[in-house]
Design a binder for these strands. Structure first.
Lengths: 198, 198
DNA sequence: GCCGACTCTGCGGATATCCACAATAGCCGC
DNA sequence: GCGGCTATTGTGGATATCCGCAGAGTCGGC
């Protein structure tokens, strides 16, 4: 479920934001502490994060850092009450999606959150495609993988046979297994698949 | 020449920064006004930009916008005296490389400038490759381009012949011209070239 | 010890691709 | 009008790729 996760230790703000977003049909989950969200986070969690900078315990920035190191790629929008340019710059350079000062304009914030949710959805779609690809790649044997790499590098079968020290016929066999497992019919299609072309 | 361009209407700051960077062997050019730099800018200008936000006449932000719309992709580092988070956020989201508040730490600024210069050099190298590619693409005739697209899409010659309503032989001729002009030997190489694969 | 995988190889034929030689035709500029 | 560029097509042969049929050796699990 693609949800807006609001992490803020101020219950009044969580409630107010919850109200705001639910009235715009954006599903919301509130978290009273960075630690709680960090604990609950899972790689398959979809949506985006609205993160207060200043909180009791772990700060929003630290939560962001920890999520990044866990591999989280959910878009993050920071909320901050006291403008601090260096913090904003560093957060954005680390990949935060936005950095909004309180008091904020409701409509603007909603727009940014909706953008972020859409971005996350697209990103997940791309990654789903990549996952299917990875699954198919995983069914290849070592040898098949080697042959595939050389095919995608543009080598002819005879050259591949040479480089691997095996017969052309064997290369053909591996090559055809690769095509079959990767569900393509030509070397060009395989190349596009692996280089992530449109 | 890869130069640090300092745009600031305060001569004292230009001088101070000029001194700082020249002492670190970074070539510097000073510009007293955004208008002057905008006028002088050329697409082949290499290096990076150190841009004061608040200036007489055109502001640093407006200069940045205008450069962007002219297609300038030089890395830009903003210098500002009065921290303004929304401005910083918007500049970074537009692609500015950094946003530094005065007073700044000399060493840190130098590091960021050097990073930016290195980035620009890399970017130019990539673009030089792309330019060579574009030049070769420009030598193709319409028909050759059509055939090329279908080849890169993974179609067999007979299919291409069908789709274009011409004979296979003609497709072969165009195809071989494409390979020759693009300096590749196989369809896979051509695909990698066009999809920008490593 | 048998079965299943992965790997390796050969033979021969059907397709596909690459290319030299050869020719026709439209268009454009000098 | 002639020369150059582009597009078109054919013939025929050299290579390369695709595949079914067949067999063989290794290794690991039941």
């Amino acid at each position: 479920m693609t949800t807006l996760h609001i992490v803020d230790d101020d219950e009044a703000i969580r409630d107010a934001l919850g109200w705001l977003f639910q009235s715009r049909n954006v599903p919301v989950a509130g978290w009273p502490a960075a630690e709680a969200f960090l604990e609950a986070w899972r790689p398959d969690m979809a949506g985006c994060l609205l993160l207060d900078i200043r909180m009791e315990g772990m700060s929003g920035l630290e939560l962001f850092d920890r999520l990044l190191s866990k591999g989280c790629r959910m878009p993050v929008i920071f909320l901050t009450g006291h403008g601090d340019v260096p913090i904003a710059v560093s957060a954005l350079k680390k990949g935060a999606r936005d950095f909004v000062e309180k008091p904020f304009n409701d409509n603007e914030l909603v727009d940014r959150v909706i953008d972020a949710l859409a971005f996350d959805a697209e990103q997940r779609e791309r990654e789903a495609g990549q996952a299917g690809l990875a699954a198919r790649l995983a069914t290849l044997t070592q040898r098949e993988r080697q042959v595939m790499e050389l095919v995608v590098a543009g080598r002819l079968n005879k050259v591949i046979a040479d480089e691997l020290g095996i017969s052309m016929r064997t290369v053909e066999v591996h090559r055809s297994h690769v095509f079959e497992k990767m569900r393509v019919k030509t070397a060009v299609e395989l190349t596009r698949l692996l280089t992530g072309a449109a």
